[in-house]
Amino acid sequence: MLLRIDPTSSQPLYDQIAGAVRGQAAAGTLRDGDRLPAAREVADALDVNLHTVLKAYQLLRDEGLVEMRRGRGAVVSAHAAALAALRDDALALAARARALGVGADAVAALVRAAAEE
């Protein structure tokens, strides 16, 4: 599992970690049943606080993308397939927004508004 974070970014670190996991689920590299590495291992490797990673995993669990299983840690749920199914639509929307000169934040806000309607 590839994780990229930028500590100088304004986006919180836990959000970046969760985003990386989400992105790989959407891309199909993380699938239903795949085990996420232990939070401590991620924290050590990225040189961030353990609670930052736990918060990211918590966020993913609340979204339903990850299930916490006793003895197996954090496991990717069947929800990953749903994210992967939306990926092509997201790419198409992003391409159209770029062509129209609409920024990523504006698109995200549009999608959020549409989802909450």
Partner: peptide
């Protein structure tokens, strides 16, 4: 400033 790790 970006950090990347791979865990597998």
């Amino acid at each position: 400033g970006e950090r990347a790790v791979w865990l597998g």
